[in-house]
């Protein structure tokens, strides 16, 4: 998780189609994809990963998609190779394993990537609140993510102070003496965090937070025309994925894949 990633959670682009989509629709999409990926039969999963790849590419996530496919292929090759060496029979069902790692893993990963790259932190909080998640849950989330860049700066400052004082010379020192370095870092890191939390809490109270933690969001969650279209498309795709399992049974797909892989 880099600073650039946190910046992505804050910077807005009003002309982006997926960014303008209601966050609840995106959360629903992740939920549906995860459920189908875990519980669905082979045909469903293959269709599912096709849909998810199309979604990721249309959102401009082609780098994520390529990385995910390459990584899962490499993982499959390495694990099958290791299994063949360790066990006389190797992997019992390499085709099923390939589908599992390619379809299930990538479908879940790419949908989650689509959610996090097209959703602003604020919109995520508002969507959760509109789903009846109390502000008592969303406020710490906002604070936590918003505080990560600040804490990274703090950690850099602490690390620099350790280096310039000669208490740590290089990252290798931390690897050689992890307990000593961790002890040195811990005190200023925790105490700075407590002080900064106090300052932030003071700012919250003087800026009107307190009593009933209820707000009128400046950018409320709203189902607009395009949200309805996307939701309808999602249900359509889900129905298609589920129906495909009745048309093409598992063993037919497994046989075809084993033919190709084998």
């Amino acid at each position: 998780m880099s600073r650039a990633f946190v910046t992505r959670l804050g910077e807005r682009h009003d002309d982006d189609f997926f960014e303008g989509l209601d966050t609840r629709v995106k959360i629903l999409t992740v939920f549906v994809v995860t459920t189908l990926a875990i519980a669905g039969p082979l045909a469903t999963q293959l269709l599912l990963v096709t849909f998810v790849l199309a979604l990721a590419l249309s959102a401009g996530l082609w780098r994520w998609a390529i990385a995910a496919v390459v990584f899962s292929l490499l993982t499959w090759m390495v694990l099958v190779g290791v299994a063949t060496r360790l066990q006389s029979g190797g992997v019992e069902d390499p085709a099923g394993f390939l589908v599992g790692i390619m379809a299930r893993g990538n479908a879940i990963f790419l949908t989650a990537a689509w959610l996090i790259t097209t959703t602003k932190l604020y919109d995520f909080g508002v969507a959760l609140e509109s789903l009846r998640v109390p502000v008592a849950m969303t406020l710490p989330l906002t604070v936590a993510v918003r505080f990560i860049p600040t804490l990274l700066d703090e950690m850099n400052g602490i690390w620099d102070a350790l280096r310039v004082r000669g208490l740590v010379r290089s990252p290798w020192d931390a690897a050689r003496h992890p307990k000593r370095v961790f002890d040195l870092v811990l005190t200023p890191a925790v105490l700075r965090s407590l002080r900064l939390a106090d300052e932030l809490a003071c700012a919250a109270e003087t800026r009107g937070m307190g009593g009933v933690l209820r707000r009128t969001p400046y950018r409320p969650s709203r189902m607009r025309g395009k949200d309805c279209v996307v939701t309808a498309a999602l249900f359509g795709a889900t129905a298609l994925c589920v129906a495909s399992a009745f048309v093409v049974p598992n063993d037919v797909i497994a046989g075809r894949i084993n033919l190709v892989v084998g």
């Binding site: 406020l139 710490p140 604070v143 936590a144 407590l194 939390a197």
Partner: peptide
């Protein structure tokens, strides 16, 4: 309280 929720958020970030 807001103070407690902010503290929870900051320590989570830590």
């Amino acid at each position: 309280t807001v103070r407690e929720l902010v503290l929870i958020g900051v320590l989570t970030a830590l």
